[in-house]
Design a protein around this nucleic acid. Sequence first.
DNA 1: CATTGATTTCTACGTCATGTAAAATATGGA
DNA 2: TCCATATTTTACATGACGTAGAAATCAATG
Lengths: 124, 124
Amino acid sequence: MDMATLGELERSVMDLLWDSAEALTAGDIRDGLARGDAAGTGKDLAVTTVLTVLSRLEAKNFVTRDRDTRPHLFHASTSRAAHMAELMHEVLGAAPDREAVLARFVGQVSPSEVAALRRMLDGK
Amino acid sequence: MDMATLGELERSVMDLLWDSAEALTAGDIRDGLARGDAAGTGKDLAVTTVLTVLSRLEAKNFVTRDRDTRPHLFHASTSRAAHMAELMHEVLGAAPDREAVLARFVGQVSPSEVAALRRMLDGK
DNA sequence: CATTGATTTCTACGTCATGTAAAATATGGA
DNA sequence: TCCATATTTTACATGACGTAGAAATCAATG
């Protein structure tokens, strides 16, 4: 059950999907990448490249594809926050000394985030 | 400044080093791996293989090597907890919506760990 | 229904990280 | 000096990813 990791481009594509409320077409993504919307340095890629990446992301269950519309529509299957949180849990889960890790982790959280954490814990 | 990631074998080697109080020789590690001490499924590797991996880990600054003794002595340059915590921060840092991620993260922490977290936050 | 332009799928290749280890070299004693 | 042991070099296979051309498919339209 371990989370597949993402490459640079794959990550950029996910960022575009995550940052967009609606589903996007391969073309939309291609343009977003060209425009440099996501961190991915304004690369000018072929649409087939984007489609290949999208297929791989689909295989990894990171995106879902709507095949009923003509330019297929793609959307992230998980929110970025959920994904990131899961990644963090995965790291934590790989350690035998979980509490020690948590301690270190908390030790380096910024003050404002410490406050946020307190609130979160209280509201549980 | 991004943390290099570790492969399967590299990770097993680090686990052995992390689990050992003292520094180890390549032979020690080879044996530990053969014995199946670390998660690494009891692989029977050549010592040169282990040395190659150790060199790579050294390049990645995960281990330090003592060249003054004959069989060189290797030891982890960071504790596992510190490494894991750093990884977690790296994931968190890659998200624009840090608090959202933290919220999700906390949402899935076990009760006992929630308590631990509270204590940690209090003692700050 | 045949044609064509758009879209998707297949196929392919380069590169890089990693696992793996033999060959070559260095080193420290006998 | 010579040997046994340890380290460094060199090498190759594999798999993930970036990248995209070629081939196949599909939807509209004449």
